[in-house]
Design a protein around this nucleic acid. Sequence first.
DNA 1: AGAATAAAAGACTCTTTTATCCGAAATTAA
DNA 2: TTAATTTCGGATAAAAGAGTCTTTTATTCT
Lengths: 141, 141
Amino acid sequence: MALLSKSCLYGLRTAIFVAQQNHNAFIPISDIAKELDIPADFLTKILQRLTKKNIMNSLRGVKGGVRLGKSPDKISMYDIVQAIDGETIFKKCFLNLEGCGEEAPCPFHESWKDFRTNLGNMLKDTSLTFLIENKKFTRLK
Amino acid sequence: MALLSKSCLYGLRTAIFVAQQNHNAFIPISDIAKELDIPADFLTKILQRLTKKNIMNSLRGVKGGVRLGKSPDKISMYDIVQAIDGETIFKKCFLNLEGCGEEAPCPFHESWKDFRTNLGNMLKDTSLTFLIENKKFTRLK
DNA sequence: AGAATAAAAGACTCTTTTATCCGAAATTAA
DNA sequence: TTAATTTCGGATAAAAGAGTCTTTTATTCT
Ligand code: SF4
Ligand code: SF4
């Protein structure tokens, strides 16, 4: 078990990679896939979830590909995770129970709530700009 | 995507449930399964991973079933998660990359490391005894 | 207009996780 | 010793996630 799905990791790595390139040009998904060692067709599907949310921007045809949909300091890890894996990580009870809590919380309820909130905030506070500062991602595959 | 696998959640809920019962008696897995609304045969398999680590104790035959393998204050959530889902959650990079970090960490490396450590500590510090204090788990299914 | 390129869309396969089934071994009770 | 019960262990099936392939649509260049 992992916190984030494989799709989500692919999405994050791609976003970081794209943020490191020239912002105006579209980069073919096949190039990214080769560079990051990710199955190209699969990556295409994943990135569609990012383009739908305007995190990325895509263009078909000869000079096509993907690029960031907005400035990298306006894109957080939270945005990407939410777009691909959804929000359940940030919202669900640690036992996946429904309906309990709040009225009659178990002893772990508050700790867990804090933990989720921290996770969410940490990801919200981490923008692509922050991640690529000093070109620190030498090894992205 | 979830932090913990379904198997792991089943295991945790079962451990909490069993901790709430009389500690000396064996409880048939089928009873637990019915009570918590978990597939019985599947639960049997999951609990084997806990008995192997002596978190639970099992007995076949007429008065058989499972019970805690040690006192509930010696069993932490960490123990259970580790037994069922393993330790990768507590150890892996947020991008699942190998080999990087330490020598040339990315800007997120430390934050993530802290986060994982916190998660581990939080689960280590949460014993079954703590969880069942005041019989707060009214709703466990 | 036509050829080439690249993402979108959908069907399909492979793998892992979750769930079911069944015979064997252990334990209890009569 | 026999019958009943309950976990164990292995095989199989169903569901979900990951990955592949093929066709369609949009875009560029000649
Ligand atoms: S009270 Fe406990 S079991 Fe209920 S939602 Fe909160 S954390 Fe989950
Ligand atoms: S440096 Fe960043 S990418 Fe590398 S292991 Fe640490 S968190 Fe992961």
